[in-house]
Amino acid sequence: MRHTPHFLLSDVTEVKRVVRENPWATLVSHTAKGIVASHYPVVLEDGPADEISVVSHVGRPDEVAHELGSREVLLIVQGPHGYISPSWYPEGDLVPTWNHVTAHLWGTPEILSAEENYAVLEALVDLFEQRMPRPRSLRMDEDQSRRIARGTVGLRLRVTRFDARAKLSQNKPADVVTRIVDELETDQPYANAALAGEMRRFHGSGSTAVGPGGGSGGAR
């Protein structure tokens, strides 16, 4: 990503939050046959505060296409993002922008055993089903669930480095930021409640998670 020091997201805790709240990720591999990209849900694992580890799965034969386990991959996590109209700026400012929260995570995947993969799939379903009024679970028909699971390959990505951005109008005066948030929360074109919430969270908290001095961070 473009090196913009005042948009760097350097706090590991904040990067983990972005992953946790935006679990649909893009997996990119530079293989012997070229660049390969796939899209899968990821689950953030519990662990030390200064480490980032995620588990996921791919459908066969994506593990072959990505040459998983043999080289470093890039995992892209995209948080809230959206168009910012110059009509929300003072008169005379005509240049729009796009606010976003994005994290690039690197590491070499570890291939999980069949049993570990099934546990990940089970946890994934439980994670998303917990919001439903009548949650479904793989445990309701374990035989069928295990048959389907054989068509997937589980992986763990222990992140060795990351590069993250939270571009949330930090370069604008407070009154302009307020106007942008207000516009994002209307029912007008380009309304974006999720992005407005991210901006309120950052600007309202006086967070120091974004700033110069280590956005291209690492995690052991």
Rank of each mutant, 00 (worst) to 15 (best):
V64D: 03
P61S: 04
G69A: 12
I35T: 15
R71G: 15
V36F: 08
S53R: 14
P61D: 00
S53H: 11
S70Q: 13
S70K: 11
A49Q: 07
S56W: 03
G82V: 02
S56N: 07
D50W: 06
S29T: 07
L44K: 05
I76N: 12
I52Y: 15
P80H: 01
P61A: 01
G59A: 09
D46F: 03
L68Q: 09
A65S: 15
V42T: 06
E45Q: 07
G59P: 03
D50T: 07
G82N: 09
K33Y: 01
T31D: 14
H30W: 04
S38H: 04
S29F: 01
S38D: 02
S53G: 10
P41V: 01
V73A: 13
A32W: 00
P80N: 03
I35A: 14
G47L: 05
V58W: 02
Y40N: 12
S56A: 08
H30R: 09
H66L: 05
S53P: 10
P80M: 03
V42Y: 05
P80R: 02
G69L: 14
V55Y: 02
V73T: 12
V36N: 03
H66P: 10
Y40P: 05
A49D: 12
E45R: 08
K33T: 01
R60Y: 00
H39A: 13
G79I: 00
D62Q: 12
G59D: 06
V77S: 10
H39M: 04
D46G: 15
G47Y: 06
G34W: 02
H66C: 05
E63I: 02
K33S: 06
H66V: 06
L75G: 06
L75R: 10
E67C: 04
H39K: 08
P48K: 03
H81G: 13
I76T: 13
Q78A: 09
A49G: 14
H66E: 04
G69P: 14
G47K: 09
A65V: 02
A49K: 11
A32Y: 00
G69K: 15
H30F: 04
V58L: 07
S53K: 13
I76G: 08
V43R: 15
S29K: 13
V36Y: 07
E51G: 11
H57W: 00
D62Y: 03
A32E: 05
D50A: 08
G69Q: 14
V36P: 01
G82M: 11
I35Q: 14
G79A: 05
H81W: 04
I76E: 12
I76D: 08
P41W: 03
L75H: 06
Y40L: 11
R60S: 00
I35S: 11
G34I: 01
H30M: 10
P61Y: 00
G34C: 05
V58M: 03
Q78N: 13
V58F: 05
